[in-house]
Design a protein around this nucleic acid. Structure first.
Lengths: 211, 211
DNA sequence: GGCTATACATAAAT
DNA sequence: ATTTATGTATAGCC
């Protein structure tokens, strides 16, 4: 904000005549304050970007910078009309989300065939887009993944089978959380007859699998 | 960077004597430059946070600020030892990722039972964590969602069945992309005999479902 | 959580 | 893309 002169040779000097912005922290000589200089803060200090060891300090930094990050994201989102989602896991595994994560993750997973730029740290590479594994059309499921798909389905089927059996014994159910994120776009209205049919199918499946 | 004096009454004035940081843009009187003032830039101008209409301008801003956002994220990640993932969709639907999105989304979806803070715009609310729909243990699948689960499985089974049938006719397969994101943590090494067994199960399933 | 002074991000112009 | 000048985020303290 300061306006001084056009040839500001003092720009890069502290009041102590030290060079600004050194890459090594300067020992602070308590700064012999003249009466017109009641400094109460050293201002923002330059820090190295490396993990902060002191936990309390690290937490403060995480808190402040996460806020800053989300603010920037909000601005970018508005200015550029972009959809942004952020997920952060603090070192203590607290989760913070920004934006409509569920919607965006879903969009990301079901990924229309657009090119995808991946930025990881400092690298930026191009990557082929892909759809959610459970809705890849048949042409797109590579043979190499089939076994995993089948395994996934197998476990899902198993859990469903168990759950359905359990359901028949216990009519008390928990609270419904938010709609499962990766189900977005699926039509939830399967009538009970259909459910029964599928249930039967599952039952036979389990037999078929083991027999 | 400027160091002037402790009582900087000129701090809030431009060289023209105008108030700094007004919320409305000041008409620029071409700035009668004295010879000691060869200004070539008005410096960063304050902008309102609202969608930029001019496309070229919007794109530049998106590009610059996305870079800035990712840089901040990288710093936060290192400083606080946090795991961060960002997905952005530009207005033209170009996707940019930051961090190990797949891993983090997976972690988010399978979500260990920790409390979850959600920040959307300016609101922050608490939300109960949940696991991935395909690995919720039986106790956690609410009855209300079962039909959707079954529907999901049904379609998955159908696609797999088709694919397996197709596989038997066509031995050419595509490139394997990255491991399907929401399969992370699953053991991909299902031996071929197991696959065959499951395949058989699926085949019977399809019969069971329709008969 | 709030305050300062300063490091850093970035709007405009080139 | 690079430069400039200034808006903004934030490190260290309370």
């Amino acid at each position: 904000m300061e306006e001084v002169s056009e040839t500001s040779s003092i720009t890069f000097l502290t009041p102590n005549g030290q060079l600004q912005n050194p890459n090594v922290p300067v020992s602070q000589p308590k700064m012999e304050l003249t009466k017109q200089s009641p400094r109460t803060s050293r201002g923002r200090q330059k820090i190295e970007i490396k993990e902060i060891k002191v936990e309390s300090k690290r937490q403060v930094t995480f808190s402040k910078r996460r806020r800053g990050l989300f603010k920037k994201a909000a601005e970018l989102s508005v200015l550029a009309g972009a959809k942004i989602a952020i997920i952060t896991f603090s070192k203590t595994d607290r989760i913070f989300k920004f934006g409509h994560v569920d919607t965006l993750i879903d969009k990301y997973l079901r990924n229309s065939p657009v090119s995808l730029e991946v930025h990881s740290g400092d690298d930026v590479v191009e990557e082929e887009a892909r759809m959610s594994w459970w809705e890849q059309s048949v042409e797109n499921v590579p043979e190499e993944e089939l076994e995993a798909y089948v395994a996934a389905m197998s476990l899902l089927r198993e859990n469903l089978g168990k759950r359905i059996i359990e359901m028949r014994n216990d009519r008390t159910v928990g609270v419904v959380p938010e709609w499962p994120i990766n189900m977005v776009g699926w039509n939830p209205t399967v009538d009970m007859q259909h459910l029964e049919n599928l249930t039967d199918g599952i039952a036979r499946c389990r037999v078929g699998q083991n027999g």
